[in-house]
Amino acid sequence: MISQYRVHLQTLVLVIFVVHPSRPVCVDVPSETEAVLGKPMRLTCIFCMKREEVKAKTRVDWYYMPTAAEKDIIPEKTHIYKYEDSNAEDVDGPFKGRLAWSGSQDLQDVSILILNVSYNDSGFYECTVLREFEFGFFTPSFSKTKNITLNVKEKATDDTTAIYSEIMMYVLLVFLTFWLLVEMVYCYRKISKSDEQAQDTATNYLAIPSEQKDNPAAPVTE
């Protein structure tokens, strides 16, 4: 009975861990800031909706501003991409034909993808999101601006966070394997102990004289 209860409890915990991540959750994560020459680069821009049940009209604009060559000269900001009314369009300019939509269907993630990154893509990117909510005659609007500084390198640098994550993954795998082994040994010992008790009970029953089996109230004869 105890073993069956433990199995049910472990199954319930496993179901909780499996089902919980499947719930839709919006998390505002920072964008990567290093791109590799000739590789695609995703510029992450997330604007979480506070009220998912309200329909909103969303417009997204992306701007690019190159790194200033001189301190006294302010570089010009260029409109490179826009998304409105389910239509995505890369504006004429240096990024024409090299930008692709990489956002989500609910428009909480409004990221874009730069194809075939070049050294000239280094600079400052600005993501501007405008949402107009529909409340009958009242249409409030909310906006958010996110800035990303992008550096293009010839080769990717080693990510220490990824290395630590990989190490922790292996440590966790070893721990779970050891825990599973302990559980198997524990269950085996419980089953073996139950079998020994059953065998002892059967042996003691067979050792009882037949007269006492027929009449349990009869005294035991030496």
Rank of each mutant, 00 (worst) to 15 (best):
S143R: 06
S143T: 04
K144Y: 00
K144A: 01
K144I: 00
T145K: 05
T145C: 01
T145Y: 01
K146S: 12
K146N: 08
K146V: 06
N147L: 08
N147H: 10
I148L: 02
T149Y: 05
T149E: 11
L150W: 00
L150F: 01
L150M: 04
N151S: 13
N151W: 05
V152T: 00
K153P: 01
E154A: 03
K155W: 09
A156C: 03
A156D: 04
T157K: 15
D158E: 15
D158G: 13
D159Y: 01
D159I: 01
D159K: 02
A162S: 09
A162N: 03
A162H: 02
A162G: 01
I163Y: 07
I163A: 11
Y164T: 08
Y164K: 12
Y164C: 08
E166T: 08
E166N: 13
E166I: 03
I167S: 02
I167F: 02
I167Q: 04
I167G: 01
I167R: 04
M168H: 12
M168G: 08
M169I: 04
Y170W: 08
Y170H: 10
V171D: 05
V171Y: 06
L172M: 10
L172S: 07
L173K: 05
L173W: 04
L173F: 05
L173I: 02
V174L: 04
V174F: 09
V174T: 04
V174S: 02
F175P: 00
F175Q: 03
F175M: 07
L176C: 03
L176K: 04
T177I: 11
T177P: 00
T177V: 07
F178P: 00
F178H: 02
W179F: 10
W179T: 06
W179N: 07
W179K: 11
W179R: 14
L180T: 07
L181Q: 10
L181C: 06
L181W: 12
V182A: 10
V182R: 12
V182K: 08
E183T: 05
E183N: 10
M184T: 10
V185K: 08
V185I: 13
V185H: 07
V185T: 08
Y186T: 07
Y186W: 07
C187R: 15
C187E: 15
C187N: 15
Y188V: 04
Y188A: 14
Y188M: 11
R189Q: 13
R189Y: 12
K190R: 15
I191N: 10
S192W: 11
S192G: 05
K193S: 14
S194Q: 14
S194K: 11
D195Q: 15
Q197H: 11
Q197S: 09
A198D: 09
A198H: 09
A198C: 09
A198N: 10
Q199E: 14
Q199C: 06
Q199N: 12
D200E: 14
D200R: 14
